[in-house]
Computed example of a mutant assay.
Amino acid sequence: MASSSDGMFTRRALGRLGLAAIAAPAVLTSARAQQKFTCRIAHTEGIGTPITLGFEKWTGILKERSGGRIDAQHFPAAQLGGLAQALEGSRIGTIQVTTAGPDSEEAIAPEIAAFGGAPGFIYKDEAHVDRVLQGPLGQEVSDIARKKTGVEFVAYGETGFRHILSKRPVNSLESLKGLKIRVPELRIWVDFWKTLGANPTPLPYSEQYSALSTGVIDGLDSDYFSILGFKWHEQAKEVTPTAHWFLPKAVRVNARWLDSLPADLRDMVRASAKEVFAEQRATNRANADKALADLEKVGCKVNRISEAERAKWAEMTAPLFDQFGSKSPETKAMIEKIRKLA
């Protein structure tokens, strides 16, 4: 027969085990709350541009509001590789965040590419852009991206409307004819410029300066901030404000990494991204005219095209909507949804 002291020992031991079992989830929760999560933010946007400054601000906010639990590290201007490497890294999780136009998903999810401005002249103005990106359609596209590419679009920044930078003046279709213009390595961009009579030359983003300097290309299309940030104006001095393509910049977060965060950090990442890049969009728009003036100050000449001429460009490229929409029923439907919000 067990002694009374044996019974007391057994009861005490069981009591301690019970308390330990109760305490275990709390210990695990506490440990998880203190766990650190590395967040590498890598992209190809230029130093000093509004979108890069937005990412710089967001990096600090992620560190501060997480109480140091998120170790956010910012690598702009292709420091960790070009656009293709950044996109692939964000999909497989070797980097946690990047940014790019939704048009970069042409091969995987062409309906997202339409959302990113393809095939040109789809967005009428900035108010149209906001109705598309900041409404239910923006969330729908993020859901598609998560399912098909493994990244979540937690917010939308922008570089704004794109314009032409060239070595010779461009102010009409005739002057555009044969221009060797750099394009992303995407079919829709090649088709767009071929339709207008130019000679599109697909090149990685990082090669544009050297390609201008060696004559591989005669020009490129970009926003004013990037032209200044990457100093492409040192190799080409003619600027034509065409506003032919508006490029949103999705803030792309690896979905597995995001899902690995505690709920409070997930919510903070999403909310702070929307906050920062709403401010970035406002800054971008408020300073676009100043950026053009800054280009003039460094020796660029601004060539204007008439509204009638621009309308002619839009009319010529309009058939590309049907061509691009034929990629899938989803792509056709997305184009229709965007145009209805104009």
Rank of each mutant, 00 (worst) to 15 (best):
M1R: 11
S3W: 06
D6Y: 04
T10P: 11
G15R: 03
R16V: 12
I22C: 01
A24W: 07
S30I: 07
S30N: 07
K36T: 09
C39A: 12
A42E: 08
H43D: 10
E45P: 15
I47H: 12
I47V: 10
T52L: 12
W58Y: 12
K63P: 00
R65T: 15
S66T: 13
S66A: 11
G67K: 08
I70T: 09
P76Y: 10
A78F: 06
L80K: 03
G81F: 00
A84L: 08
L87V: 06
I92N: 12
I92G: 04
A100G: 09
A100S: 13
S104Y: 02
E106V: 07
A107D: 08
A109Q: 02
P110E: 01
E111R: 06
I112F: 15
A113M: 15
G120M: 05
F121V: 02
Y123S: 05
E126S: 10
H128V: 09
H128G: 07
L133S: 13
P136I: 02
P136W: 02
V141Q: 04
V141T: 05
G150T: 11
V151T: 09
V151E: 05
F153L: 05
V154Y: 06
T159E: 10
F161K: 11
F161G: 13
F161T: 14
F161D: 14
F161P: 14
S166A: 09
K167C: 03
K167R: 09
N171Y: 15
S172Q: 12
L176G: 07
I188E: 07
V190K: 13
F192Q: 01
W193S: 07
N199S: 04
T201A: 00
L203R: 15
S206E: 08
E207W: 12
Q208G: 14
Y209R: 03
S210E: 15
G215L: 07
V216D: 06
V216G: 01
D218W: 03
D218A: 04
S222A: 15
D223K: 07
Y224Q: 07
Y224I: 10
Y224P: 01
F225Q: 00
F225Y: 00
F230N: 10
H233P: 07
Q235D: 14
A236H: 15
E238L: 02
V239C: 02
V239R: 04
V239I: 09
P241D: 14
T242H: 08
A243R: 01
F246M: 13
L247Q: 12
V253I: 09
N254K: 13
W257Y: 14
W257K: 09
L258Q: 02
S260A: 10
S260M: 05
A263V: 04
L265T: 01
M268L: 08
M268F: 03
A271T: 00
F277G: 05
Q280A: 02
R281V: 08
R281G: 05
R281P: 08
N287H: 13
A288E: 00
A288N: 00
A291S: 09
L292M: 05
E296Q: 06
K301M: 01
V302W: 00
A308K: 10
R310N: 12
A311M: 06
W313V: 03
A314K: 05
E315Q: 03
P319G: 04
P319Q: 05
F321M: 06
G325T: 04
M334G: 06
I335H: 10
K337R: 05
K337W: 06
A342N: 05
A342Q: 07
